[in-house]
Design a protein around this nucleic acid. Structure first.
Length: 668
DNA sequence: CAGAGACTCGAGGAG
DNA sequence: CGAGTCTCTG
């Protein structure tokens, strides 16, 4: 126990003590206050030392990302040599439960997890089957609605048309043997509701429940936590209401705000000592977030001294604002002469990255765009996964449709369409239908060849060899080798990487597929290369950098136009997250610009909300005038300290700092 | 059937 | 500006 509390501050120790003594605990952990350390200490406390009340398998530790789960597992293993089999993401834990009880949950044994593009294709089929037009009813729009609906646990009817599409989508999912992300959670809740004995089993097993990033939970996830903690009530949730930035994904900030009411005997512990940022950066962030009303309240203080003020830079007075931002950021990075990994450029939306990338590339400043094109979203990777899925699960129609045309086999849309008809009539999978369907001789031959590809004893081969064989015999590898695609080498390289550093690490291909279906942006291999990170603010949550650049703080870009109407407080939390990523230097840039044909000429309202004490105006110095000695007829001599178009700010020898028009000044 | 070229439309964040 | 769709041709 004592060893456990080493290097923890008072509040963190309190959190550990509260967790072991049992009952509900809410740890409100501000940005940079050692949240992960506290969470890991709390988790460890339940299985370590004399006071430990649980065995490793009796601790359920839930996170949102694989990265966070991995960190908990690794740190506890390294320090205490204990494996935590039930530390994982909400989705991976629920998936494991659903696999174990698939029949009780009303699922087929080999059900598949469908990712976003599979969901879209299912929805497209469903909409077309209803005789509706996919131009008028766009799959991506309706998928959004369906996902949001599934995230809310609402029983409210939305509209007749929604219900029609919703149930067509669900039955098509069922027909194909797939479930979506939301249903991984929802079907687990149903399982527990319909089988209290199963719930009871897990309640008895999980004597401690720990939850990371609690502010990001949605209604079903919160429901699930209530169910599981219903017996003993030993639940410790760690989160920060000021960093709730995922409402658009169904997260409900009210889960954390209402925790004290939902769990009346809850202990609430605040971690307010910030170990990350200097005083001015924290002051700026605090003064901004104070403008929100819906918060539990927390005041972070820093023990790292005042540090540098937040620098505010206006750009675009002399040209294109976005380009100028990129230039200034690149200048700062070059002149700082620090390792590149010290720098991050955090943007509101992905589309703002381009000028930044171009400028850094031009100057050969190594950089990476994080989260943009996810490894598992790449065409070639999805193709390979589809091949493997069809190999393991021949009923997977979506995968068959995806790969039967790559490489081209002379079986196109029209043939697939009639094949689908035939399959439907005979209640067959496309794979089985392909065996029986009569085709033109040429097609019949290739179809037979295709079927034969999957007929080998892959279960008894090394995973990597099996996939390699499949990809070679199918001509998939050859297709890329002979391709004229300008990034064919990248693609071949990606496939190679997938086989050697991922597939090879799994003992069974279905295991690999299960993992792959839950892979996320943060799971991409970390490169050790020293480079500047460019990423969205959302993707930056949980990270920290010596120097953070925040470009495009222009009203209706940030805060985003939509958010101004929908949820300005969440947008303000996003700004708070952005500023608090910085340890020592934070630079906010703004300036009028046009984008997608609209003109944005107002600085972000958030700039005004930051108390001026924490800000330093650091505008670009004009080459010609700033620093020059000037003479004014009435005010006498002085020196120019800032230039804003024709208005000069001059420090006069006798009259102090005054703004005057350029026209009344003469150079000395 | 496959590939090329013209065309339209929309552009927020992501497990 | 790019992705997705449409239309034409071999």
């Amino acid at each position: 126990m004592n060893a456990l509390l080493e290097n923890l501050n008072e509040a963190q120790c309190e959190a550990v003590a509260a967790t072991i003594s049992g009952g509900p605990v809410l740890v409100l952990a501000g940005a940079g206050t050692g949240k992960t350390t506290a969470l890991i200490a709390c988790t460890a406390a339940s299985v370590i030392g004399e006071n430990a009340k649980a065995k490793e398998w009796e601790v359920l530790a839930l996170t949102f990302t694989n990265k966070a789960a991995k960190e908990i597992k690794e740190r506890i293993f390294r320090k205490y040599n204990k494996e935590l089999p039930w530390a994982g993401t909400f989705h991976s834990v629920c998936l494991r439960i659903l696999r174990r009880w698939h029949a009780e949950a009303g699922l087929r044994k080999d059900f598949l997890v469908f990712g976003e593009d599979e969901q879209k294709s299912v929805l497209k089929t469903a909409i077309l089957a209803l005789g509706m037009d996919t131009k008028e009813y766009k799959p991506s729009d309706w998928l959004e609605k369906i996902a949001r609906y599934k995230d809310t646990e609402s029983t409210e009817k939305i509209s007749g048309i929604f219900n029609k599409i919703y149930s067509a989508y669900n039955s098509e999912m069922e027909r194909l043997g797939g479930i979506d992300f939301a249903d991984i959670i929802n079907k687990t809740i149903c399982l527990f509701a319909e089988h209290p004995e199963i719930l009871e089993k897990y309640r008895r097993q999980f004597r401690y429940i720990l939850v990371d990033e609690y502010q990001d939970t949605n209604a079903p996830q919160n429901h699930l936590l209530k169910m599981l903690s219903g017996g003993h009530g030993n639940i410790c949730c760690v989160g920060d209401d000021d960093q709730s930035i995922y409402s658009w994904r169904g997260a409900e900030i009210k889960n954390i705000l209402n925790f004290p009411r939902e769990y009346p005997n809850a202990k609430i512990i605040r971690l307010e000592e910030n170990y990350r940022s200097t005083g001015n950066i924290l002051g700026a962030a605090n003064s901004l977030i104070k403008n929100n009303t819906g918060r539990l309240g927390k005041d972070l203080h820093s023990n790292l001294g005042e540090g540098e003020k937040v620098r505010l830079v206006e750009v675009g007075k002399y040209g294109d604002a976005a380009r100028e931002e990129a230039t200034m950021i690149a200048d700062s990075i070059e002149s700082a002469k620090k390792p590149l990994s010290n720098f991050a450029i955090l943007i509101r939306s992905g589309s703002l990255s381009r000028p930044l990338e171009e400028e850094l590339a031009k100057r050969q400043i190594s950089h990476r765009l994080i989260g943009a094109m996810k490894f598992y979203d790449r065409m070639e990777i999805r193709d390979v996964i589809a091949y493997v899925r069809l190999l393991c699960f021949s009923f997977d129609d979506l995968s068959l449709k995806r790969i039967i045309g790559s490489p081209k086999r002379g079986i196109g849309d029209a043939t697939i369409k009639s094949l689908e008809e035939f399959a439907k009539q005979n209640n067959l999978s496309l794979f089985d239908a392909l065996k029986k369907f009569s085709l033109k001789p040429k097609q019949a031959a290739t179809a037979k060849e295709f079927i034969e590809l999957f007929n080998f004893d892959w279960q008894h081969m090394a995973t990597k060899d099996a996939v390699q064989q499949l990809l070679e015999n199918s001509g998939y590898i050859k297709m890329w080798q002979e391709s004229k695609d300008f990034d064919k080498d990248d693609r071949l390289h990606n496939i190679h990487d997938l086989l050697n550093s991922v597939v090879a690490n799994f003992d069974s291909l279905p295991d690999f597929l299960e993992q792959a279906s839950l892979m996320t942006a943060d799971d991409e291999r970390d490169t050790n290369e020293d480079s500047v990170s460019i990423m969205t603010i959302h993707a930056a949550k949980g990270l920290e950098f010596d120097t953070v650049f925040l470009p495009a703080w222009q009203d209706e870009i940030f805060p985003h136009r939509q958010s101004i109407k929908e949820n300005l407080e969440e947008e303000r939390r996003l700004a708070y997250v952005a500023i608090t990523r910085a340890k020592r230097h934070c630079v906010i840039l703004y300036g009028a610009r046009s984008q997608f044909g609209d003109f944005y000429d107002m600085p972000s309202r958030f700039i005004d909300e930051i108390a001026s004490d924490f800000i330093e105006i650091a505008n670009r110095k004009s080459k010609s005038n700033v620093g020059k000695l000037v003479m004014h007829e009435e005010l006498g001599s002085g020196v120019v300290i800032e230039e804003n178009d024709d208005i000069m700010t001059v420090a006069f020898k006798d009259k102090g700092i005054k703004k005057v028009s350029k026209n009344f000044l003469t150079k000395i």
